[in-house]
Design a binder for these strands. Structure first.
Lengths: 135, 135
DNA sequence: CTGTATCCTTAGGGATACTG
DNA sequence: CAGTATCCCTAAGGATACAG
């Protein structure tokens, strides 16, 4: 994505997925496990198609996501998280928990947050298992 | 910082501190507890002074950091994390742990990472207590 | 030392049309 | 449906000078 500024793991991580869109793509894949191009476009934040294409390519290049043909419809392509992407779930979870303290949480996310708050480690373990499973 | 794209806590969080520099400022304040303007400028990533000024202002506006006069030298100003900023430590910690799996960690950070990996919750608790303490 | 100000360049992004 | 391509604009960023 951008050139290397330092050896700091925070800085290097941000250079891979630290823009305003990549983590939203990862969020979609965490919530829905598999997404088509069109499903990303339909997300609330309304990403532009050219931006989406560059971000998906960057995440593919960095091994965070992968893609495959849709089992039923060969015209559709499904994006999904690799293990490297799945391992970003704890980051997403912690951002959610911070947001729970300092932002207004929409109703359709409250259930998820309750689950996370009840037992964070168990939630992450379950989510990782779910996202790693085939089908 | 930018206009609101959606109600998603991830999206809203990113709009506050999801640029390429804010988390590095927060990282510096987590590692050193208090920093002067000049100390931020000296960080490896070499942030430009105009960018630094806008980011500090944004973090001040959003209540993530605060500032005060240096106790010894009234010409110096010290920036530090508020509780809202301190509560971002788990996010930083998880990014570090992800980086530990997938990036090359420089020697001067390995000790910190060992501490985190030994007992994450204890590390966070200690860090929060340290950053909350006066002096 | 802590910022502002300015200039200039580049990257990110919105809108929309279009192709296999 | 899954992208490419184009145009155009704005925000982000680097360099540097300078002011209180």
């Amino acid at each position: 994505m951008s050139k290397k500024r330092s050896d700091c793991p925070i800085s290097c991580s941000l250079e891979i997925w630290g823009d305003k869109w990549s983590l939203l793509i990862i969020r979609d894949l965490m919530l829905k496990k598999e997404c088509t191009y069109g499903e990303f476009l339909k997300a609330d934040e309304k990403i532009a198609t050219n931006i989406l294409a560059t971000r998906l390519q960057n995440l593919l290049d960095n091994g965070i996501i992968d893609k495959k043909d849709h089992p039923d419809n060969k015209l559709k392509i499904l994006y999904f998280l690799t293990q490297k992407g799945i391992d970003l779930i704890p980051v997403i979870v912690e951002i959610n928990l911070w947001g729970d303290q300092y932002l207004t949480i929409p109703d359709d996310r409250k259930k998820l947050l309750e689950e996370i708050k009840k037992d964070k480690e168990a939630f992450i373990k379950r989510a990782k298992a779910y996202l790693s499973s085939k089908k």
